[in-house]
């Protein structure tokens, strides 16, 4: 019998939804280990987040230290290792966010653990887990064969966990992470009043069909405003610098699965589709009837976006 540890991500003092989706995976894993789900909160001044997470797990370990203010993988990986020991955990999971992807493989190396990335679920009753490979063209079932197992879990594939019956304990974890060879310099946050791309129930995404940055803003923003949507983009327009990197949807960007995804002037390259094909309803607006995006769209509109989007806006 051993426990399962979920590494939380804290943004603006609160536990993220991605963390709660990883708790759902962890509860499944705990059925296999016969143990309990523990949580780990790392940072500075993260007491409130720890109390919040305790509603979902049996014990929260909190490493609260000035040296942990910024999410530096070199430091955080050491904390994960120490917490896994403190928690008696053989399974360690975190959401497959940029932060999770940065920290967890390093932690796996420190623990001598094997790791499966971007897991979408268990394949059966054992330790086989499913994960997309080849830009989502193929689903692999893999098994981590080491005693300690590390996973990052794809947030769109799991429901956010419900609160457990009773609140768990909160336990301080002290880890000294001196002698770091990494220095935090700055964080340039993308400011947006809109819902978060990975959590929004409606996402409207624009591609190269919009022709220039100005059009992207003129066409996509009113549509997003109208629908209360988050805005995404294809790699082509992110590379062109029209919008921040953070908005790229796809294999190597964000994975989204809203109720409604509207792709405007996006061709539907496999790398883009990998990041949005889990959406409930997909709409594509593209002037090329052969565009591959129509193969995944529930509703395809072959039209010039410069006419169709303003008309849609009017009729919504």
């Amino acid at each position: 019998m051993s426990n399962v540890l979920v590494v939380a991500e804290v943004v603006g003092g609160a536990v993220t939804k991605a963390t709660l989706t990883s708790v759902t995976f962890a509860r499944e894993a705990a059925k296999r280990t016969g143990g309990q789900v523990h949580g780990l909160v790392i940072g500075q001044g993260v007491g409130a987040a720890a109390t919040e997470l305790a509603k979902y797990v049996s014990t929260v370990h909190v490493a609260d230290d000035a040296a942990l203010k910024n999410p530096i993988a070199e430091a955080y990986a050491q904390v994960v290792k120490a917490a896994a020991e403190a928690a008696g955990a053989t399974v360690i999971a975190m959401g497959a966010t940029a932060h999770g992807k940065d920290v967890m493989p390093r932690a796996a190396a420190l623990m001598g653990a094997g790791m499966a990335s971007d897991v979408t679920g268990f394949a059966g009753d054992g330790w086989g887990v499913k994960r997309p490979v080849q830009a989502g063209n193929v689903i692999a079932t893999v098994e981590v064969t080491t005693d300690k197992k590390v996973f990052t879990t794809r947030p769109t594939e799991f429901e956010a966990a419900a609160e457990a019956g009773a609140a768990g304990a909160v336990s301080a974890l002290s880890v000294s992470v001196g002698g770091l060879k990494t220095q935090f310099v700055s964080f340039d946050a993308v400011k947006s009043e809109r819902p978060q791309l990975t959590e929004a129930s409606v996402v409207v995404s624009g591609g190269r069909g919009l022709k220039e940055a100005d059009n992207f803003h003129k066409i996509m923003e009113p549509l997003a405003d109208k629908l209360g949507a988050a805005i995404g983009a294809s790699r082509a327009v992110v590379d062109a610098g029209w919008v921040p990197n953070d908005m790229q949807v796809g294999q190597t960007g964000k994975v989204v699965a809203p109720n409604l995804y509207i792709a405007v002037g996006i061709s539907g390259a496999i790398q883009h589709v990998a990041g949005m094909k889990g959406s409930k309803t997909i709409v594509a607006i593209n002037k090329d009837p052969e565009a591959p995006i129509f193969q995944v769209a529930d509703y395809g509109l072959v039209a010039d976006l410069f006419k169709a989007v303003p008309e849609l806006l009017e009729k919504l």
């Binding site: 064969t145 709409v283 193969q295 995944v296 849609l312």
Partner: peptide
């Protein structure tokens, strides 16, 4: 290997959708 591949398979296919004639039909369907 610390991670063993047990099998590869195709992802579940999305059901083919429809093309709508115009914006009115799109709004109606949505």
């Amino acid at each position: 290997p610390k991670v063993r591949v047990l099998k590869y398979e195709e992802p579940p296919a999305r059901l083919a959708g429809v093309k709508v004639a115009d914006v009115d039909e799109l709004v109606n369907k949505l």
